[in-house]
Nucleic acid binder design. Structure first.
Lengths: 222, 222
DNA sequence: GGTGCGTGGATAGCGCAACTATCCAGTAGC
DNA sequence: GCTACTGGATAGTTGCGCTATCCACGCACC
């Protein structure tokens, strides 16, 4: 398959494919001559993965590059590779400037994770992200105590343990495992986010509008 | 309070505050003379809200403007206002070009929501977002059948019903209600996203590394 | 063995979003 | 009056994800 066919099948313009090749998101095609290269279905699949992470997951190109680098580095073990891929999904940390409020929030997070008994590296970027989120909640005047957070932690662990780890083919090829992990995190994460908004709308409708409005909505719905 | 003090207390540079004023994210201060205006704690609070939605929620400025416009439009009822605010949190729709795969995904979503019995408007943008996500999953070769989705819908509804609707003060001032809804959606959404990644890491560690590694991690952890 | 289109490679430019910098006239407070 | 700061306007900057242009080559078709 040449670049024009890759473009036609994926819907991605040729200059954009060239850009992804340059940026290392997409591996080079197999050179068949000085001005010709051959691309396969793996390239098409990778291209769809890139677009999914960009458009649905809104990941920056740099994060996607980190993910594919983790996949292509054959030296690392599967768990390390999954960790690298996972850490690439984190938001870039912002400087917290030795703030003592921040330190307190970070300690709160560390204590919470310890109490949950989760096997999470002390260097996991999620710890900082969570601390930042708690600090922001507090500054907005919302409590964010353990009782508010635990339901979220429990929901996350339930989904991870009962549904998500089973999706990942640990015994298959390493690239399939890491791709499944990333897709699962990003796309099902998106689905969860949308379900949450829909659930809010539904509950808000039940609490705030008269019963006949439900009937109307349900009627329009069908 | 003058603009310099607002800047000092919030940590937001003066030109940025002026930009937010221009863009309608922040209401004008009370003019005390031709070249002087007075800002209050409401402005400080709003500024923190804007920064939270921007930095933690990564919402575009246009979405934040929609939220504040919904709050400030006194004519609408509380449920409509919450809906407007909520719809502003959706990703902008991309043109699906009358694709028949897309139509099928969208019908799948409508059927799923009907089966769940959720009172969601047929025009809710979340329906399209979910359809797009399902379509993307399929194109990546992942099943995305009801059995895969229902746990996410159930988790979202549990959190909404048991924890989130209780946080929203429906009987208080309307701006507080909508602000709480948005903050709850965006910031607890972020917390949930991070918890999910941490849960993945923890489960991956338990499945893929020898038991002694857990002990090491737990030791470092404390 | 020309001819012409598509290719790979390189470089430069565009468009959007979120700021940021500069200028200016007016005035509050000394 | 002097100075520092203000609100308001306008233009410029940065970063990111593309997109456009150019060029020399070479495969395919005549």
């Amino acid at each position: 398959m040449r670049i024009s066919q890759l473009s036609a099948e994926s819907g991605v313009p040729i200059p954009t494919i060239k850009y992804y090749l340059r940026e290392g998101l997409l591996p080079q095609g197999e050179q068949t001559s000085a001005t010709r290269a051959e691309y396969g279905t793996a390239h098409l699949h990778r291209l769809r993965l890139i677009r999914a992470l960009l458009e649905v997951g809104r990941l920056p190109v740099a994060a996607i590059r980190k993910v594919v680098e983790a996949v292509e580095d054959e030296r690392t073990g599967v768990h390390t590779m999954l960790g690298t891929a996972h850490y690439a999904l984190a938001s870039p940390p912002d400087p917290h400037a030795g703030d003592e409020d921040w330190e307190e929030a970070r300690e709160h997070v560390d204590r919470l994770i310890a109490e949950l008994g989760w096997a999470v590296s002390p260097h996991a970027p999620g710890r900082d992200e969570l601390a930042q989120t708690l600090l922001t909640l507090r500054r907005l005047g919302m409590a964010a105590i353990d009782a508010d957070l635990l339901p979220y932690a429990a929901a996350a662990m339930n989904l991870a343990r009962d549904h998500e780890m089973g999706m990942i083919p640990f015994d298959g090829p390493r690239d399939v495992a890491v791709e499944t992990l990333v897709v699962c995190t990003v796309l099902y994460g998106k689905a969860l986010e949308v379900f949450r908004r829909l659930a809010h709308e539904s509950e808000s409708a039940r609490l705030l509008t008269p019963a006949r409005d439900h009937a109307e909505v349900r009627t329009q719905d069908t």
